[in-house]
Design a binder for these strands. Structure first.
Lengths: 190, 190
DNA sequence: ATAAAATCTTAAGCTGGTTTAAGAAATGTA
DNA sequence: TACATTTCTTAAACCAGCTTAAGATTTTAT
């Protein structure tokens, strides 16, 4: 199990303690395109991606899905605000592939953290990483669109192949048609 | 001191322990417009805003300053990636007002966290809040510009008065000229 | 294998927001 | 108080990226 190794790596906790922690999680297999959380519904779970890929998105006033972020292996995903306040979600979460996921509810997570303070360190580092990535992404979104596409392609070449173009476009903040145009221009200039 | 109260509130630590922790911080008074960290320089400090306001920004290829985020009272700010890796910063940090700030170096912070594991909980919550805010901001930046301006004005009416328009524009992702136009249009329609 | 659905491409016309430029207002400084 | 500097406004010309639409390709389901 990836999660156990991950927690072990960040906390240095004993194997059997880690096992007891992981025991509180529910293992979920999500099919390609399966919706794990729907905008407006109660956000009951925090998800850890063992294998596969999730995306967090919302649907704008024009009905277009806007992808906020992806979660690949070893990343966590939820609508954090809704999860913590036990309120309705402002986002949807979808599995982009057949994914293996560990899910946990808020109450369970809180009691785990109380019982195992070392988990505070684990999540401190998880959030630190997530926040740092969010800052970087904020910067990238300010660059001209062609540049942010090139950066993304360079950094995640295999991932660009893995996901539908339209979803990548919605992540980078433009239309699929424009992404198509960028790709054509780029191919031409080689 | 705000910081002590803040740590106390999130961790429940003893007053004298909190005092010992805060003792490791350096108190800084930054003048209006003072630059605390310059893009390309070593990022040596994490800043906690006691009073005033900081902004994190970078200068794009056209020489335009792009504001990534603000830190008001009780918020933390640094180039997290550079701070953790002890490397050069990709951003600058500027005080927008006469601000009172608490600064700490990475080594000192790490040793504080080792000595006081309760601080892990403190920063877990700080990062959690920061990450949640970053997600929300990502969503707002996807909305039409006039809407994101209206949302911002509604949520922080006094802050809109406090900071220069051009900096607000760079935060919302458009030009000062366009912000001017939006304001004029809005005033007309009343 | 085959039909249906989803995705991707191309191209033309269009628009939200930028650029440029110049004057007005506010702010900082001696 | 006056001068210099920065910020804000206005308006016109412009363009990066969107919209629309229709055909081509790929994926999914049976």
């Amino acid at each position: 199990m990836q999660l156990a190794k991950h927690i072990q790596k960040f906390t240095g906790l004993d194997d059997n303690v880690v096992a007891a922690i992981c025991n509180k999680f529910t293992q979920i297999t999500a099919r390609k395109k399966e919706i794990l959380l729907e905008e407006g519904q109660r956000c009951c779970h925090y998800y850890y991606v063992e294998k596969g890929c999730l995306r967090l998105y919302f649907t704008d006033d024009k009905g277009v899905e806007q992808t906020i972020q992806f979660a690949l292996e070893s990343w966590w995903m939820t609508d954090l605000n809704a999860f913590n306040k036990n309120s309705n979600s402002s986002y949807s979460i979808q599995s982009l592939e057949t994914s293996t996921i560990m899910g946990i509810e808020n109450k369970t997570l809180q009691s785990l953290m109380e019982k195992h303070p070392a988990l505070e360190k684990y999540f401190r580092r998880i959030y630190e990483r997530a926040y740092s990535a969010a800052l970087f992404r904020m910067k990238v979104l300010r660059l001209p669109k062609d540049i942010s596409y090139n950066m993304f392609e360079k950094q995640y070449p295999e991932f660009v192949q893995r996901i539908p173009q339209k979803i990548l476009a919605s992540f980078l903040g433009f239309t699929p048609e424009y992404l198509s145009e960028l790709r054509r221009k780029k191919a031409k200039h080689k």
